[in-house]
Design a protein around this nucleic acid. Structure first.
Lengths: 107, 107
DNA sequence: ATGCTTCCATCGATAAACGATGGGAAACGA
DNA sequence: TCGTTTCCCATCGTTTATCGATGGAAGCAT
């Protein structure tokens, strides 16, 4: 029953997942699914390209390490700039939601 | 300062614009801009393809007529199925927003 | 051995939205 | 009368995000 996600929100969601500390890709997907009560289901083919974007933009850094399960994993960590970006995207998103709600409630 | 819009929401916004009665394309764009306090700015190159989609799906019908300004205009009208679709998209959207908020507030 | 879970990642297709562009017809100001 | 603005239609080509399918490797349990 896990649906797709709202386009244009993935980067923000990923950044948000990293706000409390570094995670690896698989962990990010799990986290989003869990916190959203299974509503958000980020496929790996959406997630990894997104992480590449974030790396390229300098919002996150990556470092290889070992997971809790003793497996090789790549940990992504929010940079200072990334944290600002998260805040900005959050503001902009809120702005959009307010605007959309206005339209929808005008029915 | 009118930005783009949140991808994946255009069809819903257009349907919502037609909930109270028929409008022509130009009027829909104006309405969205006005109600959203200039936040939502739907370009015509986004709007008309969207209307084509809605026509093709049967959510709306179109009819040529004259605008208030005595100009030739194409009026789009919500169908019964379109109204159901609007309700469904609205529900789904709300579901997504709740899920996203959960993730964002977990920071 | 087999298969399940965890973890990485890429590739090709699809589809949505955008910028640029074009046109025609009414209204309006000079 | 003429030029400009406003209104209203629409398409084309590009970009970009997301997705489904696919593949691989390594650890764990049976």
């Amino acid at each position: 029953m896990g649906n797709d996600l709202l386009p244009g929100t993935l980067d923000m969601l990923v950044l948000s997942s990293l706000a409390r500390g570094a995670r690896h890709g698989y962990g990010i997907a799990q986290h989003l699914k869990k916190i959203s009560a299974e509503v958000l289901d980020v496929g790996e083919s959406s997630l990894y390209p997104a992480l590449q974007r974030l790396l390229l933009s300098g919002w996150v850094t990556a470092e290889w390490g070992a997971s809790e399960n003793n497996r090789r994993a790549r940990y992504y960590k929010l940079t200072a700039v990334g944290r600002k970006q998260l805040a900005a995207e959050n503001r902009e998103f809120a702005r959009m939601i307010v605007a959309i709600q206005k339209v929808m409630s005008c029915v």
